[in-house]
Amino acid sequence: MDIAGLDGAWNRSWPKCPPEARRLRHQFPERWVRFHALPEGKRYATSDAEHAEILRRHHALLEDLLGDVAVGGGGLVAITCSWSATGAPTPRDAAVAATTPGATHWRSDDLAIEPGFHSWQHHYVSATDLHDPALDRLLLCVADDMTAGVILTEAVCAWAVHPYDGGVDIFTESTEVRDRLAGRHAEWLPSTR
Rank of each mutant, 00 (worst) to 15 (best):
C157E: 00
W188V: 09
A21N: 13
G87K: 12
W10N: 02
I170S: 02
W32I: 09
V142T: 04
R137K: 11
S191H: 09
E50W: 03
H123E: 06
H36R: 08
V161N: 05
E187A: 05
P115M: 10
R137D: 13
D109C: 12
G67M: 09
S47E: 04
Y164V: 08
R31G: 06
G74Q: 07
D145K: 09
W32Q: 08
F117A: 12
Q121A: 07
R178E: 14
D93A: 14
L61S: 02
R12A: 07
D165C: 14
T99C: 13
D132I: 06
G102T: 10
A103S: 03
W106M: 04
L76M: 10
W32C: 11
L76Y: 05
H185T: 07
P101S: 12
P91D: 05
L138Q: 07
S13M: 08
V168W: 06
H105W: 05
V77K: 02
A78K: 00
C81H: 06
E176K: 05
T100E: 01
T86F: 11
E63P: 01
T104S: 13
A103W: 03
T153L: 09
L130S: 02
R43G: 10
V142W: 07
V69M: 12
R184V: 08
G67R: 02
W32H: 15
Q121P: 06
W10D: 02
R193F: 15
L38W: 07
P18W: 06
L181T: 13
L111G: 09
F28E: 05
K42T: 14
T90F: 04
R193V: 08
V150E: 09
C141M: 11
V71W: 10
D110S: 07
M1P: 10
K16H: 15
P91Y: 03
A148K: 04
E114N: 12
T192Y: 07
K42N: 06
D93R: 14
A97I: 09
H185I: 07
R34S: 11
I54E: 15
F28M: 03
H59S: 13
L66H: 03
L181S: 12
E30H: 13
V96G: 02
L62W: 04
R92S: 12
A9C: 10
N11H: 15
S108I: 03
A158T: 01
I151P: 01
R31E: 04
P101W: 05
H162D: 06
P19C: 10
T46H: 04
R43W: 13
W188A: 04
G87M: 15
D93Y: 12
P190A: 00
G73S: 15
T104L: 15
G183F: 08
D64P: 04
T99G: 12
D64V: 08
V168L: 12
C81G: 10
S84W: 01
